[in-house]
């Protein structure tokens, strides 16, 4: 099925079955490998993208349901104010270890900050608990979100 999607502001056309999750379209068809495969059942968050600004797990999101929607991936999130703040705080506080889950963590955090500019701990829990980090960077993720929100420099 020929489909056109707006991804990071660019129209992208590709051929994919309607039931194919967006994750595999991004990675295997479009070669946009920043979005990661972790579990395939929406339990780890590594595949998080934004659909019209909302964080969604692309591993269970059929691409056929997306016509007319706007997709933002880790490759494009730095162009949004919240995404840029998150990326900066992530580097300032040296959040990242192996980094494999961090595309998803950054996407979830950017969505959180866009919707809730000054999140407290319960907001962070609500927005970030679906993202697993096996390296265990949670303490720094929390600190970095708070720093990104406050605009404080390290």
């Amino acid at each position: 099925m020929a489909t056109t999607l707006t991804i990071n502001g660019e129209a992208k056309s590709f051929d994919a079955p309607a039931d194919m999750p967006l994750l595999w379209v991004l990675r295997d068809v479009l070669g946009m490998t920043g979005t990661k495969f972790g579990c395939g059942i929406a339990q780890c968050g590594a595949c998080t993208v934004h659909i019209d600004g909302q964080p969604v797990r692309s591993c269970v999101l059929p691409v056929g349901s997306l016509s007319g929607r706007s997709v933002t991936t880790i490759e494009g999130i730095g162009a949004t104010p919240a995404g840029a703040k998150v990326q900066k705080a992530w580097l300032d506080l040296e959040v990242i270890q192996c980094g494999y889950c961090q595309s998803g963590q950054v996407m979830s955090a950017a969505a959180l900050l866009a919707a809730t500019p000054n999140p407290d701990d319960s907001d962070i829990d609500a927005a970030m608990s679906g993202n697993i980090c096996r390296c265990g960077t949670y303490v720094r993720i929390r600190a970095a979100i708070k720093q990104a929100a406050s605009g404080r420099q390290s």
């Binding site: 490759e75 990326q87 980094g99 595309s103």
Partner: peptide, 10 residues
Amino acid sequence: DTPEKVNGKA
């Protein structure tokens, strides 16, 4: 190694 891990380039 981290700068390219925040933007999907790694």
